[in-house]
Amino acid sequence: MPNVMLKKNTEGKLVFYVPKKDLEEVAESVEFDSPEKWGGEVVLSDGSTYYFEPQPQPDFPVTLRAKRLDSGE
């Protein structure tokens, strides 16, 4: 369950940053991406997938806990 810092870049895409891993990636897709419901499965440009509890869209930038899906963490 890494802590992930999320922000929008200038193109409006979601940027994913995991401090402990120096992982900085753009999110390719977000499962739920509306003001009322945000989260679910997030696929990064390097192919890895993370899961966020669906929730009302947070005010970016923000730090949230995520579950890594593709590594069985």
Binding site: M5, K7, Y17, P19, P61, V62
Partner: peptide, 12 residues
């Protein structure tokens, strides 16, 4: 970068 990221989140 750590403090810049912190200020981005906390103070936008």
């Amino acid at each position: 970068n750590y403090i810049a990221r912190h200020m981005e989140e906390k103070y936008k």
